[in-house]
């Protein structure tokens, strides 16, 4: 009963209406859902398991896509240098990429929004301290921070556990280098919002600061945050690739999209373009779809623009 009520309200809402009326958004959503779905259910969809060494046939390495001369139908998008099927590798690889991308951005968002809200609302020394930390943070490249986090993690954790926690180390590392963007944006918007009269009205009602921050200011500063988040998601996936290249990220035996692009890079000039191009396309499509979604969501959640 309650569930039915919820859906009825949902289909009646402005959000659903604005969703329906934009074909671009509908397509972007379908694409995103398909990518997420196919990566989650990769073991059931993919024709091969690229991580299963028994299934890898080195003789079948560097095969071109099926429609080209020398291609085989079972390797639709060709194979890489180790004979792994590209399609399966992309499906499995996007799992790692999506996991790292989403989790690190969400993590960074939480830290950044909290820091930005507090800094922007309280001002004074709290603001100064938080923003100087952010400045210091900005002066380190993300890779350096990731290496640091990885080094610390290796030191603290038992030796053989590294492979299993590698992904989480990556997520923490990327989140720690990304929160500054969120904090800066939220801080400046908060400083603008805090002087507005609706905040003073909330103060007159007697609401405590945390309630004012979360109920009144946060919804009003979320617009730019969503857009940054979609851009950061793409960046996080790419940084993950870089880090994996440096040996800090995921192990090469379970490649992510980024790792695949990098591997293919070596073969790009010798004519085996498919190793780079297909994972690259997958990445571009994913990032574009998520970006369009974020852009739409920002406008759709703003009641003034409905």
């Amino acid at each position: 009963m309650i569930v039915g009520d919820f859906w009825k309200r949902f289909f009646d809402s402005d959000l659903w209406w604005s969703f329906k009326s934009s074909p671009v958004v509908v397509i972007a959503t379908i694409v995103t859902v398909v990518i997420i779905f196919s990566s989650v259910f990769a073991p059931f969809i993919a024709p091969f398991n690229p991580f299963d060494l028994a299934q890898i046939d080195l003789m079948a390495s560097l095969k071109p896509p099926a429609w080209m001369e020398g291609g085989e139908l079972q390797y639709l998008f060709g194979t890489d240098d180790q004979g792994r099927d590209m399609l399966s590798t992309i499906l499995y690889g996007s799992r790692v990429s999506l996991l790292v991308g989403f989790l690190s951005v969400i993590f960074a968002m939480i830290i950044g929004i909290a820091a930005g809200l507090v800094a922007g609302y309280s001002g004074g020394w709290v603001d100064a301290v938080l923003m100087r930390i952010a400045d210091v943070q900005l002066s380190f490249p993300a890779i350096l921070i990731a290496l640091l986090v990885d080094g610390v993690a290796r030191g603290l954790l038992p030796n053989n556990s590294h492979e299993t926690v590698a992904v989480y180390v990556l997520i923490v590392a990327i989140a720690l280098s990304f929160w500054v963007q969120f904090a800066r944006t939220v801080r400046s918007s908060t400083m603008v919002e805090r002087t507005k009269e609706y905040v003073q009205a909330a103060q007159v009602i007697g609401l405590p600061a945390p309630l004012i921050l979360f109920r009144h200011i946060l919804p009003n500063v979320m617009g730019p945050v969503l857009v940054i988040a979609t851009i950061q998601l793409a960046l996080a996936i790419i940084i993950e690739a870089t880090l994996s290249f440096l040996g800090v990220g995921v192990p090469p035996t379970s490649p992510s999209l980024g790792t695949l692009i990098r591997i293919g890079n070596d073969y790009l000039f010798s004519g085996e373009w498919w190793i780079t191009v297909f994972p690259g396309l997958a990445l571009v499509i994913l990032v574009l779809a998520v970006n369009l979604l974020g852009d739409w969501l920002r406008d759709a959640l703003n009641p003034k623009l409905r």
Binding site: K196, E197, Y198, A201, V204, N220, P303, K304
Partner: peptide
Amino acid sequence: RQMQMIFQDPFSSLNGR
């Protein structure tokens, strides 16, 4: 609670969200 205020700018004194 016993004192309340009405503000000048009706466009910024209400939370638009």
